[in-house]
């Protein structure tokens, strides 16, 4: 399955906080132009995985290769400079900065600065709401606007691949649809995606392939072509007694 053409290749990745391991040897890949989902309950290591890939926390063992090169020893800013961009969950961003300031600042690496103008136009076109509120401070934004800005910030980093952590957390169905459209548009420009989500419908509408994460390991890989249905995943995942937990 794996080859050097993959955007991201992760082999036996282990990481954790303090004494406890959270990731017990993760293996996965994201192909060029591929949209891949990560699905699983809270607390099973999805966010830790993204944090480890972007080196916000240090891996304890294993390999991370981006565009064919090992990046597991690189500092976070070097990883961003190479174009692997992580949009974290519930990002507070920079509370006292205005939207435009934040977007301009986010083109921080030299490569991103070179593309700043084009990327800025693209972000404002993709999220017209940000353009309307360009002088507003981040701390006054609504949940949806903040999420849009987070993704906008990611795009300003000139990504060659995006990792999105629960972009729909706490959003209304209408906003979720809007975001799904925007994310689909981004990926149609040839940017591979690794998408962490809890909303199964949202994830199925966006990805080509999906991993199920269970206690810090990949428990199953699902090809979308196999047309697995929603309930089936829930049953597979939580056992058929899942409904009883309410």
């Amino acid at each position: 399955m794996s080859n050097n053409q993959n955007a991201l290749q992760i082999v036996d990745l282990r990481a954790g906080y303090d004494a406890s391991d959270v990731l017990h040897g993760m293996n996965l890949y994201v192909g060029a132009n591929e949209r891949v989902g990560l699905f699983g309950p809270n607390g099973h290591g999805k966010t830790t995985l993204l944090n480890t890939i972007s080196h916000v926390i240090k891996p304890r063992a294993g390999r991370v290769c981006f565009m064919g090169e090992a990046i597991d020893g690189l500092a976070p800013q070097k990883i961003v400079a190479r174009g692997l961009v992580h949009v974290p969950q519930a990002n507070r961003l920079f509370p006292d900065m205005q939207i435009m300031e934040t977007l301009e600042l986010s083109a921080f690496t030299p490569r991103a600065r070179a593309e700043m103008k084009a990327n800025l136009d693209y972000v404002l076109e993709l999220f017209p709401r940000l353009a309307e509120r360009r002088r507003q401070q981040c701390k006054t934004l609504s949940g949806g606007e903040r999420q849009m800005l987070s993704i906008g910030v990611g795009l300003m980093c000139a990504p060659r691949m995006l990792m999105l952590d629960e972009p729909t957390l706490g959003l209304s169905p209408k906003l979720k649809d809007e975001l799904a459209e925007a994310i689909a548009e981004i990926s149609s420009r040839g940017i591979p995606l690794l998408l962490v989500e809890q909303d199964i419908a949202f994830i199925l509408s966006l990805v080509d392939r999906m991993y199920l994460v269970d206690h810090g390991e990949i428990s199953r890989e699902i090809n979308r072509s196999a047309e697995v249905d929603h309930q089936e995943i829930m049953d597979m995942y939580f056992g058929s007694g899942a409904h009883d937990h309410g």
């Binding site: 916000v56 800013q77 992580h86 920079f94 900065m97």
Partner: peptide
């Protein structure tokens, strides 16, 4: 300045700053 704005960003949210490529 770019560095100056970066300093402000780091003060407001060091983790978010790291993820946009700032060497904190």
């Amino acid at each position: 300045s770019r560095i100056g704005r970066g300093i402000k960003a780091v003060g407001q949210n060091a983790d978010a700053a790291r993820l946009i490529g700032i060497d904190v």
